[in-house]
């Protein structure tokens, strides 16, 4: 009797056990299954950001690449590139927001200001009769050529780049430049107690420069004994410098002057190791825009605007020199 009971019970017991174990088999297994994570495919090596096309052209030391002949802002043709910009209502400009003195966001007002920015305000005034028709796009040094390169529809992201950009023939192959509006030179910033007087004294030291700049290229080419460290922007170099991760920063004197103004334990030393003629970058096919911008720059040179802007922003570098002489002939 008990045998029968136990046999039935046994069947029931086994059935229950099997049932439970079967349920388990249906349940998800690992922690990542519970989290619903899909296995990520091993990331394919992302293509390196397109390097500057190897250029065969040569820059002649002490000579600036010529630009297009100017059109006076008073006689802008009523059709063409300028009219298109007038219709879009704003001038789209690519600028820096962290290069003190040239183009930096003032943390107190939230406005972007500096020498580059004031030049853009002058261009806006010439085109619209209003200095504030600017639409800022903050870009890094590495983005300067990209934002001026037309996409599939032939549109560029901005109309003008004013971001401490050196005129050189390699860049002239993809974009157009205005005439030179500022004559910068590459120098080096070191700690206040450093004995170095030029980059040549920094063999074996870590020197920072922003990626995709002529500065970094020159540092790597001409000073192979210096350990070049690249950062996304100049200001990130300053952070590395303040954290003791690099010993010096090399860059244009304008930028370094802005750094020295932010850090009393830094000083700018030596003579410029290169000439860095700054120009405003524009899309290669907007010749008329370049001509009008050159006209505006001419007027700024002759009516004293250039000198007053220099004094306003770069007076820390000393009294204003004569404005750079424009070179035409393209």
């Amino acid at each position: 009797m008990s045998a029968i009971r136990s046999r039935t019970a046994r069947v029931a017991l086994i059935a229950t056990l099997i049932g439970t174990l079967a349920l388990t088999a249906c349940a998800p297994r690992s922690g990542s299954d519970d989290l619903g994570l899909t296995p990520t495919p091993t990331p394919t090596e992302s293509a390196p950001s397109n390097p500057a096309p190897a250029s065969t052209c040569k820059n002649v030391e002490g000579e600036v690449q010529p630009s297009y002949s100017p059109i006076s802002p008073d006689s802008i043709p009523s059709d063409g590139a300028i009219e298109t910009i007038r219709q879009q209502g704003v001038l789209r400009v690519g600028v820096s927001a962290d290069t003190l003195l040239m183009g930096a966001r003032n943390p107190l007002t939230g406005q972007i200001e500096g020498f580059d920015i004031d030049v853009l305000h002058e261009i806006s005034r010439a085109i619209f009769g209003d200095p504030n028709k600017l639409q800022f796009k903050v870009i890094t040094s590495a983005q300067r050529l990209d934002v001026l390169t037309p996409d599939a529809d032939g549109k560029t992201q901005v109309d003008i780049v004013a971001r401490t950009m050196t005129i050189n023939c390699a860049r002239w192959e993809t974009i157009a430049f205005s005439t030179e509006y500022y004559d910068a030179g590459q120098k080096v910033l070191v700690g206040a107690d450093s004995d170095a007087t030029s980059i040549a004294d920094l063999d074996g030291k870590k020197v920072c420069a922003p990626a995709s700049t002529t500065t970094l290229t020159r540092l790597q080419d001409e000073f192979p004994n210096v350990e070049a460290v690249s950062a996304a922007t100049h200001t990130e170099c300053l952070v590395l410098f303040q954290q003791g991760k690099v010993d010096a920063i090399t860059g244009d004197d304008t930028i370094l002057a802005g750094f020295a103004a932010q850090d009393p334990y830094a000083k700018v030393v030596g003579e410029p190791i290169s000439a860095e003629p700054y120009g405003l970058g524009m899309p290669a096919d907007k010749v008329e825009l370049v001509q009008v911008v050159n006209g505006v720059l001419d007027r700024m040179r002759s009516d004293g605007t250039w000198t007053s802007l220099y004094t306003k922003w770069l007076g820390v570098l000393g009294p204003a020199p004569a404005p750079p002489v424009p070179v035409y002939g393209r």
Binding site: T24, A27, G31, D33, L35, L37
Partner: peptide, 27 residues
Amino acid sequence: LVLASADRAAGSFTASTVSLVWLIIAL
């Protein structure tokens, strides 16, 4: 850490089922 924790939780969930195997001896 989240993933490691989820794995340990998953292990414990499975262990609570596997412990039923002991019942075979009782049976």
